[in-house]
């Protein structure tokens, strides 16, 4: 059953894009659109969008990079460890929780480290894996998406993103404890 599910999942992932391209081209042909010309016309926008994102992404990544390199996360972990233990949050997962919304590669690096230290099939390893899987690099998404349309007044977007992240993490830790412990 598991193998079948995995086979289906792999097939869907590798066929989704070709199927989409095929459908679009056939639909465009049926409508008698000048397919090649329209494609090129649309593709022209790609460069502008890229240029528009650059300043927003530079701002975000510079702040993330400095934060990561400073060891601020480890300082926080040292300070907050006793507190976290008291509420049942594994202190070893705190760096992951802070890193996840800031940097995708950073969070993956931390996951690899946790998995190496505690074992890939350990409770902690699975909790960390679930945390990475159930969330997104919130600040990267916000910078790129809002940046592409030059939005600087983001209203509740940040609070919503971080609340969702926290809800996901708490669920991840709790569900893994229920299922695997």
């Amino acid at each position: 059953m598991r193998e079948l599910l995995q086979a289906v999942a792999t097939a869907v992932s590798s066929w989704a894009v070709p199927a989409m391209i095929g459908t679009i081209l056939v639909a465009a042909l049926v409508r008698r659109l000048p397919v090649y010309e329209e494609f090129v016309e649309g593709a022209k926008e790609g460069f502008q969008v890229g240029l528009r994102i650059i300043p927003f992404l530079v701002a975000m990544l510079v702040a993330m990079g400095m934060f990561r390199a400073s060891g601020a996360i480890d300082v926080l972990k040292t300070i907050a460890s006793p507190l976290l233990g008291a509420v049942g949050f594994p202190p070893d997962l705190l760096p992951m929780a802070i890193m996840r919304p800031l940097s995708g590669s950073g969070a993956q690096g931390l996951l690899a480290e946790i998995v190496k230290t505690f074992g890939p099939d350990s409770l902690l390893g699975r909790q960390a894996a679930t945390m990475v899987g159930c969330s997104e690099t919130t600040f990267y998404v916000l910078a790129v998406y809002f940046g592409s349309v030059a939005i600087t007044r983001t209203r509740h977007a940040v609070v919503v993103g971080l609340t969702a992240e926290l809800a996901g993490f708490i669920t991840a830790i709790w569900v893994c404890r229920m299922v695997f412990a």
Partner: peptide, 24 residues
């Protein structure tokens, strides 16, 4: 990152324009 994104962006935006014009 943006340089890498530009090519992929261009491809998808081209396809999206077709999908849009075709009514999909």
């Amino acid at each position: 990152i943006v340089i890498g994104l530009i090519g992929i962006m261009a491809m998808w935006l081209g396809l999206m324009r077709l999908a849009d014009k075709a009514g999909l």
